[in-house]
Computed example of a mutant assay.
Amino acid sequence: MDIRNCSIKFRCPMSWDTLVKTENKLIRYCKECDRGVHFCNNEHELLIAMRNDWCVAIDAEEDDSKFALMGSISLRFLDNIE
């Protein structure tokens, strides 16, 4: 997924595999922050998650290594609104 015009408010140090599975395979529970983490497969799902201020996990790649990037992501233009 190509993410543009977004900023990472919080990057979670946990990994998707360590989160507690729920009935929904795209949502896992984080015991550290007591929140659900929503796995987003596309831009539409990510936009819904950002609008609801949900913690998210998205497929990412860094230095030829694939992983699930997790945290809280917001649209950049919303960061400037108080």
Rank of each mutant, 00 (worst) to 15 (best):
M1N: 03
D2W: 07
I3N: 02
R4H: 09
S7K: 10
I8A: 08
F10H: 12
T18M: 13
T18L: 10
L19C: 10
E23R: 12
N24L: 13
K25P: 10
L26T: 08
I27S: 03
I27R: 06
R28M: 03
R28E: 06
Y29G: 05
K31W: 03
E32Q: 13
E32R: 11
E32K: 14
C33P: 00
C33R: 10
D34Q: 14
R35Y: 09
R35A: 07
G36T: 07
G36K: 05
G36D: 08
V37Q: 00
H38K: 09
F39K: 06
C40T: 00
N42E: 08
N42W: 04
E45W: 02
I48W: 01
M50R: 05
N52E: 11
N52V: 01
W54T: 00
C55A: 09
V56H: 06
V56S: 05
A57C: 05
A57V: 01
E61C: 11
D63R: 12
D64K: 15
S65Y: 13
S65M: 12
S65R: 14
S65K: 15
F67R: 06
L69G: 00
M70E: 05
S72Q: 11
L75W: 06
R76C: 08
R76L: 13
R76M: 08
R76D: 15
D79F: 00
D79C: 07
N80P: 00
N80K: 14
E82G: 07
E82L: 14
